[in-house]
Computed example of a mutant assay.
Amino acid sequence: MTESQRTGGEPAPDEVLAGVAEAVPAPEPAPALEPLGAPGLEPLAWSSARIVLGGLVLWALALVVTLAVPALHTGERDWWPWCCVAGLALGSLGYAYMRRGRGNAAGAL
Rank of each mutant, 00 (worst) to 15 (best):
P81K: 13
A21M: 12
W79C: 03
A26D: 00
A96T: 10
V64M: 09
A60G: 09
E28V: 14
E22P: 08
R99K: 12
P35A: 07
G37V: 02
P11T: 06
L44N: 06
P27M: 00
A30K: 07
E42F: 06
V16G: 00
G37L: 04
A18I: 05
A86K: 11
P25G: 04
V20L: 15
V20T: 07
A12L: 14
A68C: 10
R50W: 06
E42M: 11
G40S: 01
N104T: 10
T2C: 13
R99C: 09
A108T: 10
A12H: 13
G54H: 07
H73C: 02
P29M: 09
T74I: 02
L61S: 13
Y97G: 05
G101L: 06
G107E: 04
L109T: 09
A21P: 07
G75Y: 02
L44E: 10
A32T: 12
W46S: 07
L33K: 10
W80A: 15
P70D: 00
V16E: 00
L33V: 13
A96R: 09
L58E: 15
W80M: 15
P13W: 01
G75H: 00
M1G: 02
L53V: 08
L33A: 14
W46M: 11
W79N: 06
G87M: 00
L36G: 12
P11E: 06
I51T: 15
A89L: 12
E10R: 04
S92Q: 15
A86D: 10
E76W: 09
G94V: 05
A96N: 04
W46A: 10
G101A: 05
G87Y: 00
A96G: 08
R99P: 04
G107I: 01
V57Y: 11
A60I: 07
P27G: 01
A21K: 15
V65S: 07
A71S: 08
L58W: 15
S48Q: 13
G91E: 00
